[in-house]
């Protein structure tokens, strides 16, 4: 396929709509990763949580013939799985990274194992009739030519991803719980000394990250596709983690970073029709993540140098220095 067709494809509203669709299963777990990261507990298990939720949603919806019971089951399983991480890390002193790795391994193995028992197939759940969440047609916008294609007709998880971006912002910056959570992440000892229950706060943060990761997993198996595939998350949990760092650990930044990854992924799909090795194209999102990490680090270092320079020139007063020092 010639290059101009590809370029025209990229400029079409359908392509932009596909970016939003592809970004959804990254934005949701990334918001979860953000919350736990701000609470000082890095959640490596996002990938595994997404997987068990995607699986639970498909299985329950297939056996109950009820989509919403599937969604509910996926959320409950995801939160419980995250609480397992909290239990081991906070109360049994397991290193959080090792516990996260263990839960990811268990999720990968356990879902395939159960899938094989239930369907006799290790690849996917196509023999089960699992449900799909409905798509939403936005009344007025839908009829506008370009905007309608871009913004209307997505599945509910896509809209949830953006709604939650706002809600997470409100939660983190405008509620006492959110402020406590960030305080715990900044300096657990200081938070403890003013009477915040550090472990409980971190446990809540991990549970919340489980909730968001479960939505991400469900969006994969009950919206993006309508079946479960073995290892269908394909590293999205880790990409979500990268999005948190790239987004400067803020809700809006995290969502934008997730969309950048979604863009790289959608681009890879478009380039797939060109006559170049598919491996090059498949590499794009991962290479983009590494480059993004570099850019984020360089930016942060530049910021620190700037701060140091201003501090040395005596431009900022003491209260601001304290704030800068805590970063």
């Amino acid at each position: 396929m010639p290059i101009d067709v590809v370029i025209r494809g990229i400029l079409s509203p359908l392509f932009i709509a596909s970016i939003l669709r592809i970004s959804t299963p990254i934005i949701l777990p990334a918001l979860g990763g953000l919350i736990s990261d701000l609470a000082g507990v890095i959640n490596i298990a996002l990938e595994g949580i997404m997987l068990v939720s995607a699986f639970a949603g498909v299985i329950v919806s297939a056996y109950t013939h009820n989509v919403w019971l599937g969604v509910l089951a996926g959320m409950v399983v995801g939160i419980l799985y995250a609480l397992l991480l909290a239990l081991f890390h906070l109360y049994l002193d397991t290193d959080i990274i090792l516990a996260g790795i263990a839960l990811n391994i268990m999720a990968a193995g356990g879902t395939i194992f159960l899938l094989f028992i239930l369907t006799g197939d290790k690849g996917n759940s196509s023999t089960l009739a699992s449900g799909a969440v409905p798509t939403v047609t936005i009344p007025f916008i839908d009829s506008i030519p370009w905007l309608g294609t871009i913004f209307s007709g997505h599945n509910i998880f896509t809209y949830l991803a953006f709604i939650f971006t706002g809600l997470v912002y409100v939660f983190l910056y405008k509620t006492p719980m959110g402020v406590h959570l960030r305080a715990v992440g900044e300096n657990p000892v200081a938070a403890e000394s003013v009477g915040i229950n550090v472990k409980r706060t971190q446990a809540i943060a991990i549970a919340l990250s489980g909730f968001f990761a479960s939505l991400g997993g469900l969006s994969l198996s009950m919206a993006y596709l309508t079946l479960f595939q073995n290892n269908m998350t394909a590293g999205r949990g880790f990409i979500a983690l990268a999005a948190v760092f790239l987004g400067g650990r803020t809700p809006l930044g995290t969502t934008i970073a997730s969309i950048i990854f979604g863009f790289a992924d959608a681009l890879a799909n478009q380039f797939g029709s060109l006559d170049i090795p598919p491996q090059w194209v498949q590499m794009i999102p991962y290479a983009a993540t590494v480059i993004a990490l570099v850019i984020y680090s360089l930016r942060r270092q530049a910021k620190q140098r700037e701060r140091l320079r201003r501090f040395q020139e005596g431009e900022i007063d003491d209260t601001k220095t304290a704030e800068a020092g805590s970063d």
Binding site: G110, I112, F113
Partner: peptide, 18 residues
């Protein structure tokens, strides 16, 4: 894949300091 579950349990139990 059952062994993956066994593996995960081993990691969790070995690394749980408490």
């Amino acid at each position: 894949e059952m062994v993956l579950v066994i593996q995960a349990v081993i990691i969790l139990l070995v690394t749980a300091e408490r």
